[in-house]
Design a protein around this nucleic acid. Structure first.
Lengths: 142, 142
DNA sequence: GAATTGCCTATTGACTGGGTAGGGAAAAGA
DNA sequence: TCTTTTCCCTACCCAGTCAATAGGCAATTC
């Protein structure tokens, strides 16, 4: 398994924000109540999203989070890579700055590389907006 | 990360066996010496491969393991699914007998399903024989 | 200055991954 | 029959990760 609840929660929050008024800041409390996600846990994930600029935040009353771009400008690959750290199917590809010492003679490496780009390209071809419009109104979860 | 050393070791052993005399039984000791894998750890993996019929085993002197089919008849997806337990990118797809309670209204589920079949189809399109012939003689590792 | 909200740093408990330890059972050869 | 070789089985260990919790600080609004 490659995508944990962390990434799935991130998608849910982003989809949730995408369904709401894009101007207003939405407090986390409001989201966790309807989505049944641990608020404290989600706070950590929001920190990641916020630091990377995927959402904007505001303190105090009337504060909360909102998307910083329109939903059709988020690739879900981007959201998942950020929150999961990596979407690589094998650890060999994770720190490609200092690769596996056997890389030069590894006959499986090309397979992992191809698989990796297959996964990333697929997830980069799907946009946040694809998760919210589509077939089913606004009673959708992730 | 979805494919751990367990699956990679399995591929290495299978590739190693594929490069040797298909009739003779090869003792694990011989493999772990050249591949630098913990013998005790590998024993557990071989048990899985043997029980599933991917390799045949023989006790005693002159014993060891050998492939039970020609290398071009093993899909690497088969080897990896067996040793890793599952290649699902998300836990939602792992026990599909009793699926996630939100499955019916999950807008991401179709995405996971598609991703899952993408991964499995790709790995099922590559055969053990593809890892050993190809470009580089027999000094290849995984 | 009180209330609201985001942020930051532990800490926990369960689980998993990789590996170790020790010994038992089967087969072959002397 | 006895020893050696090999596979097999069960249990254990240690480090790391995942999901969640706890507590409190900082910023903003009213």
């Amino acid at each position: 398994m490659m995508i944990s609840t962390r990434g799935k929660y991130a998608l849910r929050v982003m989809a949730c924000l995408a369904r709401m008024d894009q101007e207003k800041y939405i407090p986390l409390k409001e989201i966790t109540e309807s989505e049944e996600i641990s608020q404290k846990y989600l706070e950590g994930i929001m920190g990641t999203l916020s630091k990377a600029g995927l959402v904007e935040s505001a303190h105090g009353k009337g504060g909360g989070y909102r998307l910083s771009r329109p939903p059709e400008d988020y690739r879900i690959g981007e959201i998942l890579r950020l929150t999961e750290g990596s979407l690589s199917p094998v650890s060999c590809l994770e720190g490609e700055t200092r690769p596996c010492p056997n890389a030069a003679r590894c006959s499986a490496l090309p397979v992992w590389r191809k698989l990796d780009s297959l996964i990333n390209n697929y997830l980069d071809g799907i946009y946040l907006s694809d998760l919210i419009d589509g077939s089913g109104g606004d009673n959708y979860v992730i």
